[in-house]
C-alpha cells in the first residue's frame, strides 16, 4: 500500500500518525474494514490483515509457528504499539529491520490482495500494490522455522536479522536488518549446509550496510556466525 501512487491509501497508519506532516483531508481507517482474526485449519493458518501484532504475540500458535509470536513481539518492542500496528501495516511498510517481515518472507505465505480485483500472490513476489486482505500460512510437512536477531539491547531494532524456514522439500533463508534490501534465497534441499550458507553470504553481503555497530566486514563475519547458528536450529 505504501508504494501505491496517489495520496489515497497509505500503509501502516500508525507510521503515518507519527509523521504529522501531511495534511489529511479525508481519512478512511482500513483497520475497521479489515478482518482482524486468526483462523486455524488443518493445513493452514489464515491471518486477517487487520490482526494486530499483540494478538499475534498472544495467539496459541501450533508449535511450528511459535517463532511468529516472538517475531511479532520483537519487531515492535512496545506493547502499546503492538496493540495498534497491524500485520497488514507491517507488511505494507515492509521495513527490512522488522523481524515479522523477515520471518514472513522466510515462510512466504500466500496473500489475498485487493486491487481492481482480488488476486492471490506469494509475499516474496508481491509488488507492494493493492491492499492485503489476508495472509495464509501453510503448514508444511516437517517444517521448521527459526529467527535470530542481533541488536545491542532487546528493545533496539536488529542491525542484522536472519530467518530460516525448512520443510521436507527445501528451505528458504532471509537476511534483513540494516540492509538495503532483503535477501531471500530458496534451496531445494532441507539441509542448510556449508554450500548453501556460502550462497546466502554471497548474495547478502552486498546488502549489508555499515553503521555504528560495525562496518561491512564485521557484518559479514556476524552473518557467517548467524548462518551457522541457523543451520544448528534448522538441521540440528
Amino acid at each position: 500500500m505504501s508504494r501505491t501512487t496517489g495520496a489515497v491509501l497509505i500503509g501502516g497508519g500508525t507510521y503515518l500518525a507519527a509523521e504529522r506532516d501531511s495534511e489529511i483531508i479525508r481519512l478512511i481507517p482500513l483497520k475497521a474494514h479489515l478482518q482482524g482474526e486468526i483462523t486455524l485449519a488443518r493445513d493452514a493458518v489464515t491471518l486477517g490483515a487487520g490482526v494486530d501484532l499483540q494478538t499475534m504475540v498472544e495467539y496459541a500458535w501450533p508449535e511450528h509457528f511459535q517463532a511468529l509470536a516472538e517475531a511479532a513481539r520483537e519487531s515492535c518492542p512496545s506493547m502499546n504499539i503492538r496493540n495498534q500496528r497491524t500485520l497488514g501495516g507491517e507488511l505494507a511498510n515492509s521495513r527490512f529491520d522488522s523481524e515479522l517481515v523477515i520471518l514472513l518472507h522466510a515462510l512466504n505465505p500466500r496473500l489475498s490482495v485487493v486491487q481492481a480485483q482480488e488476486s492471490t500472490e506469494y509475499l516474496v513476489e508481491w509488488s507492494g500494490d493493492g491492499i492485503i486482505r489476508d495472509v495464509m500460512l501453510e503448514i508444511a510437512p516437517e517444517m521448521r522455522l527459526k529467527y535470530l536477531r542481533f541488536a545491542p539491547i532487546p528493545s533496539a531494532l536488529p542491525f542484522l536479522g536472519v530467518a530460516g524456514f525448512s520443510a521436507a522439500d527445501g528451505c528458504r533463508i532471509v537476511v534483513g536488518g540494516n540492509v538495503d534490501s532483503l535477501s531471500v534465497l530458496e534451496f531445494d534441499t532441507k539441509d542448510f549446509g556449508a554450500k548453501q550458507q556460502e550462497l546466502v553470504l554471497e548474495h547478502a553481503e552486498d546488502t549489508l550496510l555499515p553503521d555504528h555497530f560495525g562496518g561491512v566486514s564485521y557484518k559479514r563475519k556476524l552473518l557467517m556466525t548467524a548462518l551457522t547458528r541457523l543451520e544448528d536450529a534448522l538441521c540440528g
Binding site: F150, P152, H212, F213, G214, G215, Y218, K221, L222
Partner: peptide, 10 residues
C-alpha cells in the same frame, strides 16, 4: 565507549 559489537569481535 560506546561498547559496540564490532570492537569486541575485532
Amino acid at each position: 565507549l560506546p561498547v559496540t559489537p564490532d570492537k569486541i569481535l575485532l
